[in-house]
Simulated assay, not measured.
Amino acid sequence: MSLTESTFILPKEAQLTQKQQQITQQILQFASQHLNAKTAAVFVLSGDAGAGKSVVLSTVFNELQKRTQSRDSVFYQTDNHLLVNHNEMLKIYWEIAGQTDYLKKKSFEKPTPFINRMNKRQKQADIVFVDEAQLLLSQADPFNHFKAANQLDEIMRLTHVLVIVADFNQVVKLKSYWSKSLLQQHLAGHPVEQADLNQQLRIQDDKLAAWINSLIEGKLRPLPAAADYELRIFADGQPLFAWVKAHDQVSGLSRILATTDFPFRVFSREPWYVTAGSLKLPWDRFNYQDRPWASQPETINEVGSIYTIQGFDLNYAGVILGPSVTYEPKTDQVIFHPEKFEDQTALQKRHQADLPDEKAAQIKILKNVVNILLKRGRYGLGIYAVDPALRQKLLMLAKK
């Protein structure tokens, strides 16, 4: 399985869309104009999951690092870094660095080590890129050795130009809670330029993407007919697993995923299990390998989570919607229950008073998790719902 088959990175024969090419040049021009800025200039690229944001970021960073070696370039010998707070995506970037001429593994790291090192050396970078910026810590987190108020302000203090990719529908922890309004508050006083990618490239059928969005907002609709996409609803987890394995044998890169609604312990030596009807499979283990979880053949027999699959492309995704996602027939609504969500650390109360409604923010976290999982598959999506009412409703809609 090649790297380009399993991630957001384009194969050599593929090309950026016209919009992606335009934004690539826009970012390079913005960076060149603000290289000597006294107050960090910030470029914000936003868009939904699967819109190709990371493709643009990776392309720009590769071109920038290439230009650092040219004496004729304004970027000659500039000090540039790409940061991401997600273990699996960081591994992807490290793997990319080993396959290109201009990228070095040391240029990719997590925000906290970057911040601590630059502070210790009293240095300032020229250009910093942040992928999945919605995962930046927005409060102190002793567990991750971060003691400042938030990572965004710290990074802006340590660079002349900052380029961030953000999707506020992929915020998955309250300790990294960001919204458009909160971001704008922190960017006040900085030169800012924004761009948006709104074309869905992973799930290219507009009706299917709209169906997923409707489910997340609480309204179930009949399954759309898609000529080039397989959408299936399952009455039990075993046939869902068989469907995923069959596609993995033919197409590769097909995995079972689940909302974080089942017991687990980080770093546990003993397996923790996900149950879906008659199916019982272990959660993904903490991935100590350099290869991303989904690209390891043995993980076909595990259940992936947002912590192993976010930012990753699958060919076929089998998604288990756990007990926190239910259906209420009387109101014809999908209901999200934070109290049933097993990953309670993601919903822990924040110290800052920047959440207008904490319960609403917790529900938004759950919706974001479902959004991330349902939009992983490029060619197919299978769904099993633990809640009987939701499962019955989905099966009924599948027959229409």
Rank of each mutant, 00 (worst) to 15 (best):
Q124I: 07
D126R: 13
I127V: 00
F129V: 03
D131Q: 11
E132H: 07
A133I: 02
A133S: 09
Q139P: 06
P142A: 07
P142F: 03
P142N: 02
F143A: 13
F143G: 02
F146M: 01
A148P: 08
A148S: 15
A149P: 03
N150S: 01
N150R: 06
D153N: 14
E154P: 07
E154L: 05
I155D: 01
M156C: 07
R157M: 15
L158C: 11
L158E: 06
T159K: 00
T159N: 01
V161P: 00
V165C: 10
D167P: 11
D167F: 05
D167R: 11
F168R: 04
F168S: 06
Q170I: 14
V172Q: 15
K173T: 04
L174H: 06
L174Q: 04
K175P: 01
S181F: 00
L182G: 01
L183Y: 02
L183C: 00
H186L: 09
L187D: 05
A188C: 07
H190A: 05
P191A: 06
V192N: 06
V192Q: 11
D196W: 07
R202D: 09
Q204M: 11
D205H: 14
D206M: 10
D206V: 15
D206F: 11
D206I: 12
K207T: 08
K207D: 14
K207H: 13
L208H: 10
L208F: 10
A209T: 12
A209Q: 13
W211V: 13
N213M: 01
G218I: 09
K219F: 03
K219A: 12
P224L: 01
P224F: 07
A226P: 12
A226Y: 09
A226N: 06
D228R: 03
D228C: 05
D228Q: 13
Y229V: 01
L231W: 12
R232W: 05
I233K: 09
F234G: 04
D236T: 00
Q238Y: 10
P239N: 02
P239F: 09
L240V: 13
F241Q: 07
F241C: 05
A242Q: 15
W243L: 10
V244P: 11
V244S: 15
K245A: 12
A246V: 15
H247N: 13
H247C: 10
Q249L: 15
V250A: 12
G252P: 14
S254K: 02
R255V: 12
T259G: 07
T259Q: 01
T260I: 12
T260Q: 14
F262C: 10
F262H: 15
P263A: 12
F264H: 09
V266F: 14
V266C: 03
F267W: 10
S268M: 04
P271I: 03
